[in-house]
Nucleic acid binder design. Structure first.
Lengths: 365, 365
DNA sequence: TCGCCCCTCTTGAACGATCCAAAAGAAGTA
DNA sequence: TACTTCTTTTGGATCGTTCAAGAGGGGCGA
């Protein structure tokens, strides 16, 4: 059994002190080049790796990022989080961090989970996925000065937030999001370009930030093309059956739409069932061109079925999350304010990144 | 800012020594009840939580389990790992462990990842998902005495393994798996029960343990019903298009099957495209009853499409993995051999669990 | 020559837990 | 009373790292 290699082993071999080895690792510039090389040689010869536990005990930092893994709420959308998680793990590794998972049945108990995670593991930061109006989790973390990023914009009413007082204006936390309105607008615009004039929308009930954002992309695009969206949209909770019902209702009107944009792939999948398909002349409809359907998220289902869908740059979003955290963690302690040294690709301010999704065109639309 | 609560804080408040507090946590039975209660009261009053880093430094154990998150190879099957991961995180939390993620592009570099993870984080154990013939990762971990469980049986040839010598017979590692042959057999039997006599199979090329296992479930079931499977199966790499091609080929024969069992949902999805559907009389086929298709994994796609599929008990499998690890980690160090104190629900030996999948019947089959 | 500073490196202590050996206390026995 | 035995508590050492402070040597100006 090989002897355990510690910083002292390296120090002996390089004939320097422990501290010098530590300096080579953490502040190479203060060590003379010749010594530095000698230490580096010893490190690689011995295969030394710093013990994180000991480092953490001294510095209070664990180089661990926590992410909640959700119980695959909707079957179809589950894989979105999956892909994000993979991207996050990869980006974190590149930045010298590791991803730790935790579960929580709801937001209330999620806060309890923070407490025990922080107490036991000294986690460096959290990544929250999915933001709600006036997110209690964000407030809790902010209050305790725990670094975090959200994947998803804060959907609070800015006016309300700002009215809390002059000095006490809560500094907005760093976030990364994908511009859902833009995605839906891309889908809508493409339908307009291919000749559609009556374009319907099936989305979630008003009140969810994400849902309202996506709906606005559709409505605004229609309006700017001189068309009136009134009466052309339906609201339904996410789901296959709900999408089918909403689409049927939409198509049953006096002047049914020739295309339907959906807020999710599950809704779109349902809508596809409600729609007379290309070769489906048996359904009794006359021989007009088929109703185009587009979804959102570009899930595996969409890929398999050939559904046109809006694809989120999840790997990029994950990388941005890690970047922002690294700014706070590695930069923040040594000086400058959050995000001060970054120039964001599509910024909405320092530490806030809004990414542009892309439309994946397939045969359905 | 609240003072940091350490074991010394608790000791002062309970008017005992640090060691007594530690004993209450790690060996409660050796502390007098009255004292124990006093300490417990102090712990909850102060909200004390043991610092994992300090504990780890002394004990060498991190209560951390590492799992690889794969790059969503196939789009459709990705969510299987996702669900397994969620179950694993939940079960680990219940057992006092945490799940840490890592990535690796292939098995070779995965071994490199072990090395750096173990060096830096003192991980307690690994969970390997997906086993290969003569898995190099398992050998590496076994050699270094790193505890691990695989989700998936070892597919080595037992004869070869056993021929290495009397004393040096490698002890089989703990594993958890789902009986794929059983699942496919369930699907096949149900088709037999509903009157089908010519049942085809579309699976992966010979050579993968999982694939061969599933294929055998189909072939054995046909044979035990007095039917000859010869010529009724096709092999194709996993994927939508490949499934469609294989199914078309199968249906183009002189006596085409009336039902097709597939080794995965992606193949099944492709097969569905190749098959004349229920209302699809426009496709030119005469009016016989539609060809039934079943998949494997019960992915979101299957749920959405209404595809009959074999469902793996992933949460249970994950829980079993954690159980087995807990045996090795908590039990193994204090005495008995691995798994000696467990009675497995569906055992194939100590520390080896084979679970039974279930068939989810939907309109497609 | 002296004093001062800078650069490089070393030394001792600390982080918060557990392990170990031994002391203190209680109870039984000669 | 003195001795042994058993239970419960105590203080010190330790894990591997980083922080804080100091030591040694060379250069430079007074």
């Amino acid at each position: 059994m090989a002897e355990k290699v510690t910083i002292a082993t390296v120090a002996r071999r390089a004939r320097v002190s422990r501290q010098t080895v530590s300096n080579v690792l953490n502040a190479p510039h203060i060590v003379r080049e010749e010594t530095r090389e000698r230490v580096r040689e010893a490190i690689s010869a011995l295969g030394y790796r710093a013990n994180q536990a000991a480092r953490q005990m001294r510095t209070g930092r664990s180089r661990l990022i926590a992410v909640r893994i959700e119980p695959t709420r909707d079957g179809v959308n589950g894989s979105v989080l999956d892909r994000f998680l993979h991207g996050l793990t990869e980006a974190a590794e590149a930045a010298g961090y590791r991803v730790m998972l935790y579960t929580a049945p709801d937001s209330r108990s999620e806060i309890g989970a923070y407490d025990s995670l922080l107490g036991a593991y000294d986690l460096d930061a959290f990544v929250l996925t999915g933001t709600e109006h006036d997110d209690a989790r964000a407030a809790w973390l902010t209050e305790r000065n725990v670094p975090f990023v959200t994947f998803g914009r804060p959907w609070d009413d800015p006016a309300q937030t700002r009215s809390l007082g002059r000095a006490a204006v809560p500094s907005p936390h760093p976030w990364v999001d994908v511009n859902g309105a833009d995605g839906v607008a891309q889908a809508t615009r493409r339908l307009l370009d291919t000749g559609h004039r009556r374009i319907g929308f099936v989305g979630w009930p008003t009140g969810s930030g994400v849902g309202d954002d996506r709906r606005s992309g559709w409505a605004d695009t229609l309006r700017s093309a001189g068309l009136d969206p009134t009466g052309l949209d339906r609201a339904a909770p996410d789901g296959f059956a709900q999408g089918e019902a909403a689409a049927r209702d939409l198509l049953a009107g006096a002047e049914p739409p020739t295309a339907i944009v959906c807020a999710s792939d599950s809704l779109a999948l349902g809508a596809l069932q409600a729609v007379p398909g290309p070769g489906d002349s048996a359904a009794g409809s006359d021989h007009r061109s088929p109703v185009a359907v587009t979804g959102f998220d570009d899930t595996p289902v969409a890929q398999a079925i050939g559904l046109t869908s809006v694809s989120q740059p999840l790997a990029q979003a994950a990388a941005c999350c890690v970047d922002l955290l690294a700014d706070v963690l590695d930069g923040g302690r040594r000086g400058g304010p959050v995000g001060s040294r970054r120039s964001d690709p599509a910024a909405g301010g320092p530490g806030q990144v809004l990414l542009r999704p892309s439309l994946v065109v397939r045969q359905s639309g």
